[in-house]
Computed example of a mutant assay.
Amino acid sequence: MLSVTNLVKTYGKQNAVNDISFELQGGEVVGLLGPNGAGKSTTMKCIVGLLRKTSGEILIGGEDHLSVEAKRLFSYIPETPYVYDLLTVQEHMQFIAQAYGIKEWKDKARELLENYELDDKADKLGRDLSKGMRQKVSICCALLTDPKVLFFDEPMIGLDPKAIKNTKRIFRELKEAGKTILVSTHLIDSVESIADRIMILKDGNIVGNDTIANLKIQVAQEEGGTLEDLFLELTKDE
Rank of each mutant, 00 (worst) to 15 (best):
L150E: 06
I170M: 14
E91S: 02
T180R: 00
F95W: 08
K179R: 15
K121Y: 13
T145R: 11
L113H: 04
V149G: 02
D107K: 11
E173M: 12
K131T: 13
S193M: 09
Q98I: 01
R197W: 07
R127K: 15
E114T: 09
D196A: 02
E114F: 04
E114N: 10
V183T: 13
A195C: 12
V89D: 09
D123S: 08
F171C: 12
I194Y: 01
L187W: 03
K124G: 01
K131L: 15
E104F: 00
A99P: 04
E104H: 11
A177F: 06
T180C: 13
S193L: 10
E91Q: 15
D189R: 15
C141R: 14
T167Q: 12
I102R: 03
H186R: 05
S193V: 08
K124H: 11
R127E: 10
E111M: 00
M199F: 02
F152P: 02
D160V: 08
L187Q: 13
S190T: 15
R110G: 02
E114C: 09
I139M: 07
E117S: 09
E111D: 03
E154H: 07
K175P: 09
K148Q: 15
E192L: 09
K165R: 12
C140F: 05
V191S: 00
K162Y: 13
L129P: 10
D153K: 14
R169V: 02
Q94M: 10
H186I: 10
L112F: 00
I181P: 04
L125K: 13
L143Q: 05
E117Q: 12
Y100A: 01
G101I: 12
K175E: 14
K162F: 13
L187I: 15
L182I: 15
K124S: 14
M199P: 06
I139S: 07
R169C: 00
L144P: 08
I188R: 11
P161G: 08
D189M: 11
A195H: 00
C141F: 00
T180P: 00
Q98E: 15
F95C: 01
I200S: 09
K106V: 06
E117W: 04
I170W: 00
K175L: 14
